[in-house]
Design a protein around this nucleic acid. Structure first.
Lengths: 246, 246
DNA sequence: CGTGCTTTTGAAAATCATCAAGTATAGTGG
DNA sequence: CCACTATACTTGATGATTTTCAAAAGCACG
């Protein structure tokens, strides 16, 4: 075991994660990630090339344009993925959660940056190591293809939102999507700021705020605090998200 | 050989394509498509499950929401891929050319519709047949993953365009991208209408037309006829596409 | 030479952005 | 415990880009 790996292991134990000889076997995210394609008896192969690290809130761990030497698997937390224009305009292309992988880009450079918006735990693989692993476990390649296909579908849905939906429709779509993904009980907790939401939906923070207020006044949602939303009228919100309401 | 396949073969010969015993071996699109992952000696395996068809201009051959039973490989022509909102608003998510594959969606339904905007030749595979082929030729799965990764990068770039670029910047980006893809000599020939361009860039046809006119008056481009564009000042257009110019 | 379609151009309207305060909320240090 | 600061969020007034509505011009086709 390399020193860097020992360090990562130690960090992880401080974070309160018990480990036997095979950290991948006890990984919370395994069953929901591409790693599940590796059979139990071969998990040590995976652990040998995985490098687990904690990323504190606000830290950028992938930078658009950098040489894409590593592949990442998020095992806890949330990251925002974004692209920048030279003058600072930002487009958030998605939010990554436990089970998501990043850095698939075949090209030599990352196509986006990734920054933790709450503490994130990542598993890092070098591209070479991953390539060898994929050669030995074709099932994992299938999983990656499935995951990439799903991301592509989500990206197409987002293009429809950005290109053709109004601010109200964008917010309605966003809330319903968040609600579907994050099942945190009756409330919907937004892990991102208004600024993140704006840059994700192609709007400004003012428009996001105003639109939330309007949806609240119309009784479609309730906002007990800025990052907590209750959906009050799901039917109306759904109609709105599909572009069927004023 | 099944009757339907004989019919397809016959159609194809009418279209002027010579065939030996193995149509995949003589396919113009093979070298630029995922089919290239199949070694020459196994091409008959591919040909056995492929069903080649001509699609006339204007015909929709994939409908969003339909059960995704088939996988398609475009071997000639151009198709527009789009999503619709119930009230008719349309977002074109891309244009597919020879070598592109469609219908990767893992989910049971197609996420978009596909319509020929000039005569298109497609190779159709049933999902089951393809699955078996992929199991036997892991290299093809790798190719699909590479292709999906590239599509994902393009989709993220398009999200930046739709969410954060002005009309001028969108048109500049569009023209440069088209120019990079279609190397038809000195001119850039647009295969799609203004309406298609508008629905691809999240604009209206009027805005597209006005913006083209303005770019022409400023000397960045020349428009000898509506579907033919000459880039006059590539540097300025590039600056504009990156958001660095007024 | 109409007829229908695409494209272009003009004027008015609307949505959303920008500019500008003002209000919460959380964290810090006295 | 209370200012004090920093940050996020909200709200208001104004403005600009883009859309909508409308019509004319250009082209292909029968």
């Amino acid at each position: 075991m390399k020193a860097t790996e020992q360090k990562a292991r130690a960090e992880d134990q401080r974070a309160g994660h018990a480990h036997d000889l095979d950290p991948c076997a006890s990984c919370d995210a395994r069953t929901i990630s591409v790693c599940n394609a590796i059979p139990d008896r071969d998990l040590s192969r995976l652990a040998d090339i995985a490098h687990e690290t904690m990323i504190e809130t606000g830290r950028t761990f992938i930078t658009e344009g950098d040489h894409a030497d590593y592949f990442y698997n998020i095992t806890a937390g949330t990251a925002r993925l974004y692209k920048l224009l030279p003058d600072g305009r930002r487009q958030i292309t998605g939010f990554a959660h436990a089970g998501d992988f990043l850095g698939l880009a075949i090209s030599t450079a990352y196509a986006f940056s990734a920054e933790a918006i709450e503490p994130v735990r990542i598993c890092r693989f070098s591209r070479q190591d991953l390539r060898r692993l994929l050669d030995d476990f074709p099932e994992m390649e299938k999983r990656l293809l499935d995951a990439a296909s799903n991301e592509l579908v989500a990206a197409q849905e987002q293009m429809l939102l950005l290109g053709r939906k109004t601010a109200r429709e964008r917010l309605a779509s966003f809330l319903l999507r968040q609600d579907r993904n994050d099942q945190d009980g009756p409330h919907l907790y937004l892990r991102m700021t208004r600024s993140d939401i704006a840059d994700y939906l192609g709007l400004t923070i003012e428009t996001v705020s105003r639109t939330f207020t309007r949806l609240r006044k119309e009784g479609l949602i309730d906002i007990p605090e800025p990052s907590m939303i209750n959906i009050q009228n799901r039917a109306a919100l759904t109609q709105l998200a599909e572009g069927l309401a004023g």
